[in-house]
Simulated scan of single mutants.
Amino acid sequence: MTPVPGGAVELRDDRRDTRWRTELAPFLLGTYPVTRDLHRAVTGTGPTPDPAAGGAAPLTNISWLEAIELCDLLSARAGLGQAYSRDARTGEVAWDRTSDGYRLPTEAEWQYACKAGTSGYRYGEIDDIAWYADNSDGRPHDVGGKKPNPWGLHDMLGNVWEWCWDLYDEEVYGSYRIFRGGGWAESARGCGASVRRRSHPTFAIDDLGLRLARTVQGVRTA
């Protein structure tokens, strides 16, 4: 995992026409999206068959709820505290923000890490940094095949969308969760640091995966 320094990021909600600034503590973020090989090593089973994708390709067809479960499995395997618990009656997921276990990044953490101190829509020329509709040949590619951002994070844009912890807009969309980054089937315009998408936590598709985060021990996440 890659250490990400603390800092601040500005986010926006176009529906509400609002912007807000979030202060972030240092945290750890996966250098790459979770791969099919990592999923197999943790669960003992292969992900949804995809003859076009090898083990180093990003894991796809995983829902937000399955992503949460995978984070807890990884934490248990590593001897870390589990970040999440799920109410057996309501199904609601709670996050223990003091846990040092694996978790999904918040939307603010994801955007901050993606931009990596840059100020543009992307951190580089799109064909140099991302697999997207114009260059992906209609499939995901092994992680790390494109140039990283200035903080050494690969595939933050393109290849697969990545689930985040946050609700999108509870007032309008209820339990829908956010995903970020654009995927191999996305147009160039959809692969930008500020692009926000959402879906139901049970939703899974072939260009949506996840990236792991961890809270730095002793530093509380906002």
Rank of each mutant, 00 (worst) to 15 (best):
R36P: 02
A113G: 05
V34I: 05
V195T: 10
G192S: 14
R15G: 10
L210H: 03
Y132S: 04
F27W: 06
T45C: 12
D169M: 09
V93Q: 04
I178P: 10
S99F: 05
L210T: 01
R86A: 05
G101T: 08
L80D: 15
R211V: 04
A88Y: 00
C164F: 09
A53D: 00
R189T: 12
G192Q: 11
Y168R: 12
R180H: 03
L104A: 09
I62W: 00
D96P: 00
G190F: 12
D142W: 01
Y132L: 03
P49E: 04
S136C: 03
G44A: 07
V9K: 13
G152T: 03
W64S: 10
P148A: 01
S136N: 10
H200L: 07
D14N: 12
P3Q: 15
L29Q: 07
V160M: 01
A41K: 15
E170K: 14
A76G: 04
L11C: 08
E23M: 12
S99R: 02
W20C: 12
F179W: 04
Y173N: 14
R196F: 03
G44V: 04
I178W: 06
L167T: 14
C71F: 01
A8I: 13
A108Y: 09
N159C: 01
L38F: 09
D128Y: 08
S136D: 03
S194I: 07
E92G: 05
T31V: 11
A41F: 14
L104C: 01
R189F: 15
P26W: 10
W131M: 08
Y132F: 07
P148L: 05
R97M: 09
D100Q: 09
D96Q: 00
G192N: 09
T90P: 08
W165K: 07
W95Q: 11
D87H: 00
I62R: 01
P105R: 08
V9N: 13
S187H: 02
V216Y: 07
C164H: 09
P140D: 08
